[in-house]
Amino acid sequence: MKAQRKTICTQLLERFTHDGECFRQSINNGDESWVHHYDSESKMQSMQYRHKNSPAPKKFKVVASARKVLLTIFWDMEGIVHIEFLEQGTTINSERCVPTLHALKGQLRRVGQDKVKDVVIQHDNAPPHTSRQTQCALQQLELPTIPHPPYSPDLALSDFFLFPLLKKHLKGNHYETDAEVEADVRSWCRSQTLEFFANGMRKLVQRWRLCIECDGDYVEK
């Protein structure tokens, strides 16, 4: 697998070297992640000032709530392109991926035909993304993809960049309904600057380089 990771990263980096910013600007990353109604605070978030002689505050083990919604998001160097949510109990499969891709294509058309022609999709290798039905839909919609090595969340843009930062914002917050979670996720996404998204794309190219330098090994933070 290390050889495959290195080969794919080499191909992508060569394409970036040849096409420059045009290639990076064309990448549209799509991924899914669960967001919970409540996720406990990190140790850093829960730290509080106390006098050195004060007793330590009691801590209770809290786990993420069972209530959650599935976030599907597509984004590029300019920001969020498409976002949708599926309620708990919904399964992400080809039947769900295909209408999502149609919605994405519609959104791309609304922002300009040139953008539709230039876009390339970055997906991980989850079965719903690689199924024959999904691949046929991508071909029909003229949405080409770039290769992604299997079992490589360290090279999946949303996994190593967007989702960790989003969930850091959500940690410690309590939401009563799915709508509250969705509203806060959308609000956080809208509040991010153009530079935020551009920086994420720059990190993706950096990861390709690091993977090659590490001879295909997993890239640490």
Score class of each variant (00 low, 15 high):
I8G: 01
V119G: 05
E220D: 08
Q135V: 14
K6M: 07
A179C: 01
S40M: 14
V185T: 01
M44P: 06
K167E: 06
Q139V: 13
M44I: 10
K6W: 04
R5P: 02
P144S: 05
N173M: 15
T130I: 05
K168M: 09
N28K: 15
L210K: 12
L104S: 01
P57L: 00
C97I: 14
H51R: 03
N173K: 15
F74V: 03
K221A: 08
I83Y: 07
S152C: 15
E95Y: 14
L104M: 06
V98C: 05
L104R: 02
P127I: 04
N125I: 05
T100L: 14
I83H: 07
N93R: 07
L194R: 01
L143I: 09
P55H: 02
Q133K: 13
K115E: 11
E95G: 11
R190K: 13
P153Q: 11
C22R: 11
L210I: 12
G172D: 01
N28V: 15
L170I: 00
E176T: 10
E182D: 00
E142Q: 12
R186D: 00
A56L: 13
D217M: 13
F163R: 03
W34I: 03
S187V: 10
I121L: 04
E14C: 15
R110D: 10
R50F: 00
E213G: 03
F85C: 02
S33G: 12
P99C: 08
K2Q: 05
Q140M: 12
P164E: 03
L210D: 13
F197P: 00
R15D: 02
F160H: 04
D217Q: 11
D19H: 08
K61T: 13
I80A: 09
A156Q: 11
G79F: 06
M201H: 13
S46V: 00
V35K: 08
H169Y: 14
D159V: 08
E87W: 01
L204V: 09
D31V: 04
C189H: 06
P164F: 03
F74P: 01
H82F: 07
K68W: 09
E41H: 07
H51Q: 06
K167Q: 05
D159M: 06
M44R: 12
M77C: 15
L70I: 06
S26P: 06
L101V: 03
C214N: 10
T90N: 11
H18T: 04
H18E: 09
T130N: 02
R207P: 05
G30T: 14
R202M: 07
F163A: 02
M1T: 13
L101H: 05
S187G: 13
A3V: 12
D217R: 09
G79T: 08
V181T: 02
A179W: 02
I73E: 05
A183N: 14
D184S: 06
T10D: 06
H36S: 12
L162S: 00
R110T: 09
E195A: 14
Y151M: 08
W188P: 09
Q4P: 14
